[in-house]
Design a protein around this nucleic acid. Structure first.
Length: 422
RNA sequence: GUGGAAUUAGCUCAGCAGGUUAGAGUGCCAGGUUGUGGCCCUGGAGGUCACGAGUUCGAAUCUCGUAUUCCACCCCA
């Protein structure tokens, strides 16, 4: 083998695909019951979209994008996240004139050029939701509630919800001023990066991992204390709406999301089981993004959840998902009757059942073993006798009981005797 | 981008003070009365010991490089 899947990518083999289908269907079903509709957007966009949307001060844009030139020399980028593309589509198709609110969900693969680690890949999948047009706190609380319901429905426990408010552009300025006032006297003792951050974006000083800087950060003022009245009220109402749904959360004033477009509410669902950082899902409100990308002034809130991390969490909590069910009937045959067996299987499948036959030319004994291994509900040996007489013996694999049956009646018989039917 | 660890059959791993044809479990295939499963028994296929150099009479075992994965930073899903 000299060719491998590219670094950071992986094949999703049938066993894992089955698990993913389960998670995805549960999500889709829940979204539909909440009134969300699916949207699919292109795998790549013009690079400019992400630079303007996600923000050129974010790590994602600065060093993690898969960017390339196409044959007409346009710069394109494989999407590193979903929101920017969805917002672009929202604007491009005039969705602001659609009945509001517009509630969308998506299932998309994302691409980020990063160093590999557990729960971190260069191609990964996200399930997400976006709500456009609703500025009310209940929209924030709805998407969070949807996630809470999703995790609960999967049987997951102990995933911690952390929320914060980072205010609107107006109160963020007030906060930046407070930060600068706090840091200014200490500036000479801080690292070079922070000297630059001080003027460009003091918020990032809070993130600095230099010992001296991080010690200072502990005593730094917190955005929550500098919210304007509107933002403060919004945050209070979000919390109340969460309380009424019985959702537990932790206010974490230190949550600083990695993408630049967030306003007011930001939140994360975190766990100890999915790698160093533990974030399974992140989201928040982004009231300014649609306008910033050239659209009307439409508020929005949403989230994205990492499917691979979700799967790690499921595994860590010991939640096993149902395996692929075996066929309702396995029809064993001989070389002389293999085509008859195939025809019988095809007929049953057209009746809505599942059936398989041997494609390997194996002995009946080997076919029995195969049927058992794949978890077939019933088995029927179809030899020349059976084909001639039009009847055969059907055996229930679970207990070995057998019945003589007309071949024409098998469909009806199986429907009446399948698992789950009395 | 910085540092550390790992890499032997499909999978999980043993082997290594360097020495003839590289092992186990599991999985896979076949057989155990010519038309019958789950247990059990027997046999078989499957590895250029990640790749490439080097040291050596001789390397899966030592050294260096490359790749991949994992872990810690960084950051995010």
């Amino acid at each position: 083998m000299d060719l491998k899947a590219p670094r950071g990518t992986k094949d999703i083999l049938p066993k894992e695909a089955t698990k993913r289908q389960y998670l995805e269907r549960a999500f889709e079903d829940l979204c539909h019951r909440y009134g969300y509709e699916e949207i699919r957007v292109p795998t790549f966009e013009y690079t400019e979209l992400f630079v303007r949307g996600v923000g050129d001060s974010s790590d994602v844009v600065r060093k993690e994008m898969y960017t390339f030139q196409d044959k007409s020399d346009r710069s394109l980028t494989l999407r590193p996240e979903g929101t920017a593309g969805v917002v672009r589509a929202f604007i491009e198709h005039g969705m602001a004139s659609w009945p509001a609110p517009l509630k969308l969900w998506y299932k998309l693969n994302m691409f980020r050029y990063e160093k590999m680690q557990k729960g971190r890949y260069r191609e990964f999948w996200q399930l997400g939701c976006e709500v456009f047009g609703a500025s009310a706190s209940t929209a924030d609380a709805e998407v969070i509630g949807l996630l809470d319901a999703y995790f609960a429905g999967l049987g997951l426990e102990g995933i911690r919800l952390e929320i914060n408010s980072i205010g609107c552009p107006a109160c963020r300025e007030t906060y930046k001023a407070a930060l600068r006032a706090y840091y200014e006297p200490e500036l000479p003792h801080m690292c070079e990066d922070c000297q630059v951050r001080f003027t460009r974006n003091p918020l990032r000083m809070l993130d600095c991992k230099e010992d001296s800087c991080s010690r200072l950060a502990e005593g730094a003022p917190v955005q929550l204390d500098y919210l304007c009245d509107d933002c403060k009220e919004h945050f209070t109402l979000v919390r109340q709406a969460l309380d009424k749904q019985g959702i537990h959360y932790l206010v974490n004033p230190r949550i600083v999301r990695g993408l630049d477009y967030y306003t007011r509410t930001v939140f994360e669902f975190v766990s100890e089981n999915v790698g160093t950082q533990g974030s399974i899902c992140g989201g928040g409100r982004y009231d300014g993004l649609v306008h910033e990308l050239g659209g009307p002034d439409v508020p929005a809130v949403g989230f994205a959840m990492g499917v691979e991390r979700l799967m790690l969490e499921m595994e860590a909590q010991g939640i096993t998902l149902v395996e692929k069910p075996g066929p309702d009937l396995y029809i064993a045959s001989f070389s002389a009757t293999s085509a008859d067996a195939l025809a019988l299987a095809a007929s049953l499948i057209r009746q809505g059942l599942s059936a398989e036959t041997d494609l390997m030319g194996r002995s009946v004994r080997a076919q029995m073993k195969a049927a058992d291994r794949m978890g077939a509900g019933f088995i029927l040996v179809l030899g020349e006798e059976e084909v001639t007489s039009g009847q055969g013996t059907i055996r229930k694999m679970a207990d070995g009981s057998e019945e003589t049956i007309l071949l024409d009646a098998i469909g009806t018989y199986l429907k009446e005797n399948k698992e789950g039917k009395p």
